[in-house]
Simulated assay, not measured.
Amino acid sequence: MRNILQDLPDNRDAEVFENIVDEEGVRVERIVSHGQSSPVSGWYDQDWHEWVTVLEGEAVVAFANGEDAHLKAGDHLMIPARCQHRVKWTHPARPTVWLAVHYPKA
């Protein structure tokens, strides 16, 4: 047994992605951010759906349509397949811990 909020990596250079489950088309991952954001020039544009929640910290997810979602601990968001998005901001002074579930488009 492990605790998703313990043993957090302290990588300040890049977000850390750790698979918790990866089988039969479903991937669950823990993401730990320390003030990182996606490159301004690029968007995630995935072939699969993604459900994400912030367990600790804060983040802003930007969408290509100009909307932003400000997530705090406990907030969650459904990102449909092919919905262009990026991480605009994560809290610089404390870790932001995400739980992401990736699953196939029906």
Rank of each mutant, 00 (worst) to 15 (best):
A106P: 15
H85A: 08
F63N: 04
W51D: 14
I20W: 06
A59K: 13
A59P: 12
T53D: 07
D75P: 10
P104H: 00
G35A: 13
P104F: 06
P80N: 08
I31P: 01
W51F: 15
N11K: 05
R82L: 03
R27W: 09
E18V: 14
R27E: 09
N11W: 01
V21E: 10
N19V: 08
E18D: 15
W89Q: 00
R86L: 04
P92L: 01
P92G: 05
V87C: 06
H76T: 09
S37E: 10
R86H: 06
D7W: 00
T96D: 01
E23N: 01
L55K: 02
R27H: 08
H76K: 02
Y44F: 15
P80S: 08
M78F: 15
A14H: 14
A64R: 15
A81N: 12
A100G: 15
L5R: 07
E15C: 04
N19Y: 11
R94I: 10
K105F: 02
D47A: 15
V101Y: 01
V26N: 11
E18H: 12
K72E: 14
Q6R: 12
V28E: 08
A81E: 11
E56A: 03
K88N: 06
V16K: 11
N65C: 11
C83D: 00
P39M: 04
P95N: 02
H49M: 07
K72V: 13
P80R: 05
A93C: 07
D13M: 09
I4S: 00
H49C: 06
H91N: 13
R27F: 04
T96A: 04
C83K: 07
A64M: 07
E67Y: 02
R82Q: 04
G25M: 10
R12T: 11
N3D: 15
H49W: 00
F63G: 04
R12W: 03
A93F: 08
R12A: 12
W89V: 03
E58S: 14
A69W: 14
K105T: 09
W48P: 01
V61G: 04
L55T: 04
R27G: 05
L5N: 07
D7C: 03
D47G: 15
I20P: 04
A59G: 11
P9H: 04
H76C: 14
G57A: 03
G42S: 14
V40S: 05
D68M: 10
A100M: 11
M1A: 12
N3M: 00
V97R: 03
V101F: 02
E24M: 08
F63E: 09
G25H: 07
D22K: 14
P39H: 03
H85M: 03
V101H: 03
R82M: 05
F63V: 02
S33A: 12
E50A: 14
I79S: 07
L8A: 00
V40P: 00
M1K: 02
E23M: 00
A64Q: 14
E15D: 08
G42F: 10
H70V: 15
A59H: 12
V28R: 07
Q6V: 08
P80L: 07
V32P: 04
I4M: 06
N3I: 05
I79L: 07
L5D: 05
L99T: 09
Q46E: 14
W98K: 07
G74N: 07
V60A: 08
M1D: 11
V26P: 08
V32R: 03
I20H: 06
V54T: 03
E58R: 15
R2G: 10
E18I: 14
A93P: 02
